[in-house]
Design a protein around this nucleic acid. Structure first.
Length: 659
DNA sequence: GTTAGGG
DNA sequence: CCCTAAC
């Protein structure tokens, strides 16, 4: 609401770029299907809330939308981008791709056929699903990476998104994931983007079925066929099989969900084109819903079926009314919310509620369970089933990939595997997570948090800039060191000057030639073998010289041990260094400073490119600080202490006036 | 939430 | 860098 980033389909919306084309509603009623509609970029917060995206994010998403690595489905005929981006790698400079997609999405089209809409619905649904799922898992794993999963949804449903429950245990169990038939493999979508195929094709194609990847038989997306639904239907009396048929007739696609309750609700929603699932009996004549079984007076508004002007078939409203219906809890909220807003619909809410209450929920598997399960799973699966699908690898996901009831979704490297498990007797989806940690939050994640620059934040930002412009160049270190007095290594960059201003006013600090060494653009993810045999990801970030110096200064200023202080005050600009990191680094520095004194040559010769050597002056300083703070490792205390560089010492004195 | 220490 | 116990 505050930061409206809604984009009108054909106004100068953020996405109204050449090549993106109009954005049509596929949600809500059929009448609107041809109307340009507002799409909205939302971000999934850590607690599950969906909040409007900021402009920056919109831009970012836009970048990502043309990033081939991201999951984007540009439905060719309509040309609207629907994308699900999950964070981290915004790779700019991909805009040229716009051109390539431009040709295939001529936004002339004004007609949308139900198949496509269905597919799009499913896609949006699925994307949301993914996002929620991912976010949930992320939370389950204790990761609080806010690097924003984004989804573009239209505004109708974004209203309801606001009502989404916080991601919690209920979400998962209430969403039979496998229901959404077509699983959209990004690469396949990509490949399809270059054909003129409609959505139907798009949705059918990427079915990961062995040997027949492109000719889906497991999923059929056809038009809803209401001819099969003549007469009176009482959902309560139907078997699962019949419910499946009804489902198909209603939505034009199949489902494998075995949850009767879910099926009934879903169908009810579909038939009534509303979120009202109170009715379970319907009378259908001439392909139209004549009557809801219960509560007649309630057909103002919701009850009416929308007719698709194009095909004349009755649209499946449920999906459209609630494209992101994530099970009863959401419905609960949506319905109740509806009650507040929508005067017309009071019918059956009591029944509805009792029904809701009656439906028992199964407890979510714990994080531990998930992880352990995943481990077992991956062991079992090794060889026959590959739970890891690489986003970009079309070839690899081909033949020997069995996917039956489980739906595997891979999001930028992480893999979300759902499996059917018999937990608590009802088939619910147990998410499996490959036990890899997420990569680091993206650098500008602060912005995503709507980080309001406090006074502190402002300076931090300034410092950051300064640092970006002048940070020490490690490579130069050797030369500099050779040519100039070691003192220069204790010279401070601009930001440090502020920092040191109290104590070190007089000293004119030479600023070395600097280059952004801490620019840290690369989120190199390194996998490290653990002792337990597994491998885990480690986002390693080498300590730069300037960081080390900051640390040293911080320690000298605030004292070793006040890590959070140091972190907060001296490392405000390094979002990725935690206080623990500082502590660890200091520990290492300490060790190094006392260990490496004996052989000055040793360190020089032994330095490889991998581990940047700590300049002797810094080590000296570390040593000094360690002594003054009685942190000297007991076993080494006797060895040798000061004595080396007198020049260094003097400088130290100068700089450590605030010791 | 921080810090210390071990892995 | 991660984890965890102990503040």
């Amino acid at each position: 609401m505050e930061t409206e980033v809604e984009v009108e389909g054909n106004d100068e919306g953020k996405f109204e770029e050449p090549g993106f084309g109009k954005i049509y509603s596929s949600l809500s009623s059929a009448k609107q299907l041809t109307d340009p509609v507002v799409y909205k970029l939302v971000r999934v917060e850590g607690d599950g809330r969906l909040v409007p995206a900021t402009d920056d994010e919109v831009m970012e998403v836009k970048d990502l939308l043309v990033d081939e690595k991201s999951e984007v489905c540009t439905v060719a005929d309509v040309g609207q981008p629907i994308g699900c981006i999950s964070n981290d790698r915004s790779s700019p400079g991909m805009l040229p791709q716009l051109e390539s997609s431009e040709g295939l999405s001529p936004s002339e089209n004004t007609e949308v056929d139900p198949d496509k809409l269905n597919a799009r619905l499913e896609y949006i649904e699925e994307m949301l699903q993914k996002v929620k799922e991912e976010e949930r898992l992320r939370i389950a794993c204790g990761s609080r990476d806010y690097s924003s999963a984004c989804v573009i949804v239209d505004s109708q449903c974004s209203d309801q998104l606001d009502k989404l429950p916080a991601i919690d245990e209920n979400l998962q169990s209430e969403i039979p994931l496998q229901e959404t038939g077509p699983s959209f493999a990004p690469s396949l979508i990509q490949s399809h983007m270059h054909q003129s195929g409609g959505v139907g094709e798009c949705s059918n194609a990427p079915v990961l079925t062995e040997g027949r990847a492109l000719t889906s038989t497991t999923v059929t997306t056809s038009k809803p066929d209401f001819s099969k639904l003549n007469g009176e239907i009482c959902l309560d009396n139907l078997s699962i099989k019949e419910l499946h048929e009804t489902f198909k007739a209603t939505f034009g696609r199949e489902t494998t969900v075995k949850d009767k309750q879910w099926l009934k609700r879903r169908i009810a929603m579909g038939l009534t084109n509303s979120c009202d699932v109170s009715a379970t009996t319907f009378i259908i004549k001439d392909n139209k819903l004549v009557n809801k079984g219960k509560e007649d007076g309630s057909d103002n508004g919701d009850g009416a079926l929308a007719n698709d002007p194009a095909t004349g078939t009755t649209m499946s409203g449920g999906q459209q009314g609630l494209p992101i219906s994530h099970g009863s809890q959401l419905e609960d909220q949506v319905v109740s919310d509806k009650r507040n807003r929508n005067i017309g619909d009071n019918s059956g809410s009591e029944d509805h509620h009792t029904e809701q209450r009656a439906a028992k929920r199964v407890r979510k598997p714990t994080k531990r369970y998930i992880e352990e399960l995943s481990e077992v799973e991956s062991k079992e699966a090794s060889g026959k089933l590959r739970p890891i699908v690489k986003n970009s690898l079309l070839g690899q996901m081909s033949s020997n990939f069995h996917t039956r009831s489980a739906r595997n979704v891979s999001l930028e490297g992480r893999t979300v595997v759902t499996r059917l498990d018999s937990l608590g007797g009802s088939g619910i989806q147990i998410p499996c997570v490959s036990r890899v940690r997420r990569s680091r939050p993206r650098k500008n994640f602060m912005a995503l948090l709507k980080f309001n620059p406090s006074s502190m934040g402002v300076t931090a930002e300034l410092v950051k800039k300064a640092l970006g412009a002048h940070s020490f160049l490690p490579d130069n270190y050797e030369n500099e060191r050779a040519q100039s007095a070691p003192v220069q290594f204790l010279g401070v960059a601009d930001e440090d000057r502020q920092f040191l201003s109290t104590g070190a006013v007089g000293g004119h600090h030479k600023v070395l030639k600097q280059v952004d060494s801490s620019g840290d653009s690369d989120d190199n993810v390194v996998t490290v073998p653990t002792s337990k045999g597994g491998i885990r990801r480690k986002h390693h970030r080498a300590w730069t010289l300037s960081e080390v110096m900051k640390l040293v200064e911080g320690v000298s200023r605030y004292g070793a041990g006040r890590w959070s202080e140091i972190k907060r005050l001296a490392f405000a600009s390094y979002s990725y260094r935690t206080s623990v990191d500082l502590k660890d680094k200091w520990r290492n520095l300490l060790k190094a400073s006392f260990a490496q004194i004996p052989s000055d040559k040793g360190i020089n010769s032994r330095k490889n490119a991998a581990t940047m050597p700590i300049p002797e002056p810094i080590l000296l300083r570390v040593r000094e600080l360690a002594e003054t703070q009685s942190q000297v490792p007991p076993n080494l205390s006797s060895s040798k202490v000061p004595g080396t560089g007198s020049s260094g010492n003097s400088v130290h004195e100068k700089q450590s006036g605030y010791l």
